[in-house]
Computed example of a mutant assay.
Amino acid sequence: MTLRTRVLVLISALVVLAGVAAASVLHASARADRRDRAQPGGPRITAGTVALTGDSGRLIFRNMAWGPHRDELTTVQASGPRTASTVKCLRFHAASGTGVCLRAVHGTVQDTYRAVVLDAHLHETAHYDVPGIPSRARVSPSGRFAAWTAFVGGDSYAGTNFSTRAAIVDTRTGKLTPSLEAYRIVKDGRTYRAADVNFWGVTFTADDRAFYATLATRGRTYLVRGDLHTRTVTTLHTNVECPSLSPDGTHIAYKKRVRGLPKDAPWRLYVLDLRTLRETALAEPRSVDDQAVWRDDHTVVYALPGDYGADLYSLPSDGTGTPRRLLTAGVSPVYLD
């Protein structure tokens, strides 16, 4: 075989290999594209306008269904098709035309995270760095304050090698409290200090002064009431995580660790009457790792694992009834005022 023949054979082989590689890439791309368009039986989703104002009671959430609109803020009326925005969030909450969106910022080496304040048309008005993986988000009823929680490296939380950092921002002035650990803690009537303090799961009252959150220290969790003016938090009740205040300000929905349950599924949903501190176990037999929201003063909504990642369920807040699945492939729900 001459040198010229060898060269031609080599070139032909390279062309064939390149063709095979290109065909493989195209096939994989087409397969991913088919997956991204829709899964059989999945929700119908169309692109459109999503706003934080409009019909009272309308639901906005992070869409989890596979496709071009996965992770986008999406709205739905009753059982009709979903309308998706182009705004992607890992966690989301909104009230009175103001939203907070916790999102990933993809980098060449690693991802970072950001809390973005949104106006009623989902336009960014401000953003803040988040020091870890986003976990919870809340906006006060007036839209004046926004809060978020992130997992960061450090002390233990829920049996993992993480600690949490809870931040609050005044959306009008931009003043940021990067960590509630800067607040004075009052426990059992005395100022309390400890190196292992963690906060998470902020929920606001309607007066733009007070909030509730979880405080963890020395292996126990507490419901605390915070004061934005005095920068103080006071312990109220034990074994409370991810509190959520009812619209009328009288009850807290939360997840509680229950003895005897598996370590990887230790929580049950409860409601606490703030006037009497009486606890009511809700009729959800599964472990709920979520910060519930209130649809009204008598109904809580929360996420549980589903085929697409998470589904949304509702349940009466008085301990009666049975869980009802609201929709598939959704998380971080918000009901418009």
Score class of each variant (00 low, 15 high):
G226I: 03
G67L: 10
S29W: 15
D33Y: 12
L10V: 14
Y302L: 02
Q39T: 15
L304F: 07
R6T: 12
H127D: 14
L336C: 08
L312E: 01
H93K: 02
W148R: 04
L261Y: 10
I11N: 11
R259A: 15
G80V: 09
V87Y: 03
D188Y: 12
A146W: 03
Q77Y: 13
W267K: 02
A167Q: 05
R138M: 13
Q110S: 13
G99D: 03
D318A: 09
T299G: 06
D290W: 08
P141R: 11
A166W: 00
V109Q: 11
L73M: 08
A28Q: 12
A182N: 06
V25R: 13
V130F: 02
V100M: 07
L3G: 07
R103L: 15
L336A: 03
H229P: 03
V334E: 00
T276H: 12
P68D: 13
G226S: 12
T5E: 15
W200N: 04
R268V: 10
A292P: 09
F211V: 09
L261K: 12
T177D: 12
F211Q: 01
D273I: 12
L245A: 11
Q77H: 14
S244M: 11
H251Q: 07
Y113T: 10
V76H: 00
V117S: 04
T74F: 05
A94M: 07
G80A: 12
G321W: 01
A310V: 03
G319R: 00
L176E: 00
G143N: 08
G54E: 00
Y128C: 01
Y212C: 07
Y335N: 05
S12C: 12
H237T: 05
A206N: 08
R172K: 11
L261E: 10
V301C: 10
V202H: 00
A84F: 06
